[in-house]
Design a protein around this nucleic acid. Structure first.
Length: 275
DNA sequence: ATAAGGCCCTGACCGC
DNA sequence: TGCGGTCAGGGCCTTA
């Protein structure tokens, strides 16, 4: 599933190939994909726009256009933003097709239809709810400690809350808790300052490592899982210590990795190393 | 304010 | 082989 490292990989790989390209037309095949504006207005407004700048906030991709509008893309579970050569075969999961001036198509494809696109002049309404960005120096220990203080919810659930820290999803939450040696069911408020500091550092480390390996592609078909804009897989799954490794030995102590359900999410951890 | 649960979706997988 | 049921899950919404 696309989290911060996967979205960052998208931005880095799309920037050099999309920069300066113009959208000459667009089709919306599943209207609910367009969060704003109304789909007909989205089609009218994106026509003629030229890609100009590339950024990311949490799990949101920010594709800046020359006019000042921004195309915001959230891939959610199974979304892909693919750059397809001329004449590539369409499939039923392609919900938005943007024709580019070089003959290629920029296609939003999403099996489960949870992903969303916005075309907006102001980012605030879409992004303002997000907590600090974990890798740009705005993720401060004092603030993190304060956000966890008094919280009874499991620390794993709090890591998935995008208002506490932006961009962490199920994979990197489990991996960060493992790296910090913290049990996922611990309440947020029960963490000492030293534990919060370890967790903060672990979040930054696993996200940076994920980016360095172009994200995590898990088993299954390309339709279901993260692949890069050109269709290639990421490589960070080879470095997962606990995520989707139920029953396999913990790399540190060889205790079998356990799986529980927490906040409606599969949660993987080492019962010996994480306390 | 916080926590918990439902909802959106559909392919993969399981048991019969 | 075919079929029905269950599962996965990010963010948003409702409820308590």
């Amino acid at each position: 599933m696309p989290e911060l490292p996967e979205v960052e990989t998208y931005v880095r790989e799309l920037a050099p190939v999309l920069s300066g390209r113009q959208v000459i037309g667009a089709q919306v095949l599943w209207p609910r994909t367009i969060a704003a504006p109304a789909p007909a207005n989205f089609v009218a407004q994106i026509r003629g726009q030229r890609f100009h700048s590339f950024g990311r906030r949490g799990k949101y991709m920010l594709l800046g256009l020359e006019s000042g509008l921004t195309l915001i893309v959230h891939l959610r579970m199974t979304g892909h933003l693919l750059l397809m050569p001329p004449g590539a075969a369409p499939d039923k999961h392609m919900h938005v097709v943007m024709a580019l001036d070089d003959g290629r198509n920029l296609v939003f494809q999403d099996t489960r239809k949870f992903g969303r696109l916005w075309l907006v002049s102001e980012l605030g309404p879409v992004l303002d709810h997000l907590g600090p960005e974990p890798l740009d120096g705005s993720f401060m220990l004092d603030d993190f400690v304060q956000r966890l203080a008094g919280r009874k919810a499991a620390v794993k659930a709090l890591l998935l809350d995008q208002t506490i820290v932006a961009g962490v999803g199920n994979i990197y939450a489990d991996e960060a808790l493992f790296a910090a040696g913290i049990h996922p069911t611990r309440s947020g408020g029960s963490l000492s300052r030293a534990e919060a500091a370890r967790l903060q550092q672990a979040i930054q480390n696993v996200l940076a490592a994920g980016i360095a390996r172009a994200g995590s592609s898990l088993g299954g078909s390309a339709l279901q899982n993260y692949v890069r804009p050109g269709g290639e897989q990421g490589e960070f799954q080879a470095e997962h210590n606990v995520f989707q490794r139920t029953g396999k030995p913990c790399p540190t102590c060889a205790t079998p990795v356990e799986r529980i359900v927490l906040a409606q999410r599969g949660t993987h951890f080492c019962p010996h190393c994480q306390r």
